[in-house]
Nucleic acid binder design. Structure first.
Lengths: 147, 147
DNA sequence: AATCTAATTTAGGCTTACCTAACTTTATTG
DNA sequence: CAATAAAGTTAGGTAAGCCTAAATTAGATT
């Protein structure tokens, strides 16, 4: 019993990952994700959100009823949690290096879509080990502060 | 005497960076970069390359003469060297962590466009310090090999 | 229940970056 | 030096994601 690939099974686009990540975030903080909330969160128009939400419904990543709202399907939730995990791990790593929150937010937003599982695991392991090397971290941070 | 911003001075798109990076690479290895070479290197059609090369000429990033070839302008060369530097630094860092060449190539190709100068400097510093921590690196690599 | 407002949807367009097919120019070579 | 092959260009199209403006629906307030 294999998972059924509808078509060529392309990986989700960055845009799709961004939408799913925000939708999960909204559901976790507000309990729901309306079109207007998603639009505000991503700083795009409500019309664009409606389009994408219809597409995500067609792709089976969420269940959407016109004018009524949406819920993530198991597949959509899995993708959302996956991208959220990448986001958090990268954020933790860059925080450890002493970078600015604004810089971290910006860079992670871009990089999170391009990091494969092995690279993610390596950075996860590195972060864990570095946490117990405060002197090494201090030296890295010094070099940063010295512009 | 400030550098003159033609328009709103948007940052170069990922596509522009990819083209410039390959063009510089071809010039460094073959001495020149023809449309057909760039197309092969990026695995896209010659027609697409012709279009982009005309655009890069219009933007002052290279000088292009129809049917005759192209050379990078100082501005174009600066951008090309900048993205190449990001590529190399990220590659060095992931190599240090013990990742597969194929994985590294793929991930760096995506991430290089989304890493800001501060983050780059942090990773540069970290790479330098880690190089002198073989035992820490060994522990990270162990964790990777253990899937 | 009628009205008003906020949320949503539809329609029509735009830009980027790619494509194929057809054509033109340049370079090679017999 | 004419013919062929390779390289380059143009024309016309497509798909993803965004936009604004104009409907439409739902929900709240009287």
């Amino acid at each position: 019993m294999s998972t059924k690939p509808k078509s060529p099974a392309r990986p989700p686009s960055s845009a799709v990952e961004d939408y799913l990540e925000r939708i999960l975030g909204l559901i976790n903080t507000k309990g729901y994700a309306r079109v207007v909330d998603i639009a505000q969160s991503l700083d795009i128009s409500q019309a664009s959100v409606t389009n994408m939400v219809q597409r995500l419904d067609a792709e089976g990543l969420l269940n959407y009823e016109k004018y009524r709202g949406l819920v993530l399907t198991p597949a959509g939730e899995a993708l959302a949690k996956n991208i959220t995990h990448r986001h958090e791990l990268l954020t933790d790593f860059l925080k450890l290096l002493g970078l600015d929150d604004a810089v971290i937010y910006h860079d992670v937003e871009g990089m999170e879509h391009h990091i494969s599982p092995p690279t993610l695991r390596a950075i996860e392991a590195l972060t864990a080990h570095l946490t117990r090397q405060p002197s090494l971290l201090a030296r890295v941070r010094e070099q940063l502060d010295a512009n």
